[in-house]
């Protein structure tokens, strides 16, 4: 059952200097469906692939608006993300109440990073099993941060986490130079294409399984789902009739 003797808790190093429980937690992130984030000079965009456990069930929540100016996308344990997002919501409200100031993204990321790190250094605690992308706009402009269960946080230009996200990252790396000057809609398109690259063969992005979150300078963070993203999907994947006979009837006009 156990891989070795050094993974019973998150306070014990292995002789190789690894903390297995933290690494396992990072595996949980890879189990979650893929989410992508990109920033330009003016906007920050999140895109997420939603999974439903079965055809009869609803789709999972992947993007959570936190405050007027930012939101998060999650990959991994949704319940852990809920705990973190509640914390972030409280911290954000408290900043607005105490200082009448929107909390900076670097600050809120540092705070959850600190919280996560505590879990990796106390016996009996477990690391968060979720990775987050934090995207939005603060006084210093648009930002994207990545958060990992280890407590590591870093600012990114573009990022993808979750199942098969390597393909999305490959797309993002190839198009890295285009992001900074991208318009709002171009940025959304890039995010959707990156997301699409991570899908397994024969699967498509639809209005049901995709979420998009956008924030911009003087534009509050907003979550787009369902028919609100239909035009973006159509514009991004204009020639996708081939390979999906079943749905082409609906997509085509």
């Amino acid at each position: 059952m156990f891989r070795n003797n050094y993974d019973n808790d998150s306070v014990t190093f292995s002789p190789q200097g690894r903390i297995f429980q933290v690494e396992y937690a990072q595996e949980a992130v890879k189990q979650g469906s893929v989410v992508v984030g990109i920033v330009s000079k003016t906007h920050a965009v999140l895109a997420a692939l939603k999974r439903n456990a079965e055809d009869l069930s609803s789709y999972q929540k992947k993007i959570i608006p936190i405050d007027a100016h930012y939101g998060i996308a999650l990959a991994g344990l949704a319940s852990d993300a809920r705990v973190l997002s509640n914390f972030m919501k409280q911290q954000s409200l408290s900043s607005r109440l105490t200082y009448d100031r929107a909390i900076s993204l670097a600050e809120i990321t540092a705070r959850i990073g600190h919280r996560a790190q505590v879990n990796t250094q106390h016996y009996g605690k477990r690391p968060y099993g979720v990775g987050l992308l934090i995207a939005g706009v603060d006084a210093k402009g648009p930002h994207l941060f990545e958060f990992q269960p280890s407590g590591v946080t870093q600012e990114m230009v573009a990022c993808g986490i979750g199942a098969r996200s390597q393909m999305a990252r490959t797309y993002l790396e190839r198009n890295l130079d285009h992001f900074e000057g991208s318009s709002r809609v171009e940025l959304v398109k890039h995010a959707l294409r990156a997301l699409k690259d991570s899908l397994s063969q024969g699967r498509e992005l639809t209005v049901d399984n995709t979420s998009v979150g956008v924030a911009g300078i003087s534009e509050d963070f907003k979550l787009y789902e369902g028919q609100d993203i239909a035009s973006w999907l159509d514009a991004t994947f204009e020639n996708r009739e081939e390979g999906e006979e079943g749905e082409s009837m609906e997509v085509d006009t």
């Binding site: 109440l97 006084a139 210093k140």
Partner: peptide, 19 residues
């Protein structure tokens, strides 16, 4: 300029002090 604008301004400070 955008860098400096992240620190507390007079309005932020007044809100804090009033609390």
């Amino acid at each position: 300029a955008t860098e400096a604008s992240a620190e507390l301004n007079a309005k932020n400070l007044h809100t804090y002090l009033s609390k």
